[in-house]
Amino acid sequence: KEMRNAYWEIALLPNLNNQQKRAFIRSLYDDPSQSANLLAEAKKLNDAQA
């Protein structure tokens, strides 16, 4: 469930391009235990690109 939530949050971040989203989501599938960390990194990048 945590992975699914992280997937959708990443997919809906407005300032990431599709390539960036795909990279984060690929990492999510590679290591679901890192969901919270990956989401935090994606949000950080999203904010930096705002």
Rank of each mutant, 00 (worst) to 15 (best):
A23E: 07
R26W: 11
I10W: 01
K44N: 05
L45P: 00
N15I: 01
W8I: 11
L39D: 00
A48G: 13
R26Y: 11
N15E: 03
L28M: 10
L28Q: 01
W8D: 08
R26A: 10
E9R: 15
D31F: 13
Y7R: 12
E2V: 05
D30I: 14
R4V: 14
A40L: 12
A36N: 07
K21V: 05
P32Q: 04
S27D: 11
S27E: 09
N5S: 14
I25H: 08
L38T: 08
N37R: 12
L39M: 09
D30Q: 15
L16I: 07
K44T: 09
R22D: 11
K1Y: 07
L13P: 00
L13M: 14
L16R: 00
P32M: 07
E9A: 13
F24K: 01
A36G: 11
L39W: 04
Y29D: 03
Q49K: 05
Y7W: 07
K1A: 14
W8N: 12
N15W: 12
L39R: 09
N17V: 03
N17G: 11
R26C: 06
W8L: 13
Q34E: 07
L39P: 01
N5Q: 11
P14R: 10
L28T: 02
L13E: 00
A42N: 00
Q20S: 03
I25A: 03
Q19M: 07
I25T: 03
R4N: 08
Q49M: 10
A23H: 12
Q20I: 05
I25L: 08
Q49R: 06
D30K: 06
Y29T: 06
K21T: 02
A48D: 13
A36I: 13
N17T: 08
L16A: 00
Q20F: 02
E9L: 03
A42K: 00
A11F: 14
N18I: 11
S33M: 14
Y7A: 04
L39N: 01
L13Q: 04
N17F: 08
P14F: 04
L16F: 01
S33A: 11
P32S: 04
R4A: 10
R26H: 10
A36F: 10
N18M: 05
S27P: 02
L13N: 01
S35P: 02
M3I: 15
L28C: 01
F24T: 01
E41Q: 11
E2T: 05
Q19R: 08
F24D: 00
K43L: 08
S27R: 12
N17L: 08
Q19Y: 15
M3D: 09
K44Q: 10
I10R: 00
A11G: 03
N18R: 05
N18T: 05
N18K: 12
E41W: 11
L28A: 02
A6W: 10
Y7E: 15
A6E: 05
D31M: 11
Q34S: 06
P32R: 04
P32H: 03
N15S: 05
R26S: 07
K1G: 07
A23P: 01
L28Y: 03
D30V: 14
N15M: 07
Q49L: 12
I25Q: 09
L16V: 03
E2L: 07
N37Y: 08
N15L: 06
A48T: 13
K21W: 02
D30P: 02
Q19S: 14
L12F: 13
D47F: 10
A6R: 05
K1T: 11
A40K: 13
A11P: 02
M3S: 07
Q20P: 00
I10T: 01
L12E: 07
L13D: 01
D47S: 14
R4E: 15
P14M: 07
Q19I: 10
D30E: 14
M3K: 06
Y7I: 15
L12S: 12
L12W: 10
K1L: 13
M3N: 08
S35T: 06
A50I: 13
A48H: 11
K43V: 09
R22V: 09
L28G: 01
E41K: 12
A23T: 13
S33Q: 12
L45F: 05
P14T: 06
A50M: 13
A36K: 15
L16E: 00
Y29V: 08
Y29H: 06
N37H: 09
M3E: 10
K44S: 10
A48Y: 13
K21M: 03
K21C: 03
R22Y: 10
Y7F: 04
E9P: 02
L45M: 10
F24L: 06
Q19G: 12
I25K: 02
E9D: 04
R22S: 06
L16Y: 00
Q34N: 06
L13F: 04
K43F: 07
E2A: 02
N5A: 10
D31Q: 13
L13H: 06
L38S: 03
A50S: 14
K44M: 13
D31L: 05
Q49C: 04
K1I: 14
A23C: 06
D31P: 01
Y29I: 10
L38V: 14
N5L: 14
N37S: 06
K21L: 03
A23K: 15
A40F: 06
S35H: 12
E41M: 13
K44I: 09
A11L: 14
M3V: 12
I10V: 05
R22E: 10
K1W: 05
A23I: 12
L38Y: 08
Q49D: 04
S35A: 06
K1E: 15
N46Y: 01
E41R: 06
P14E: 08
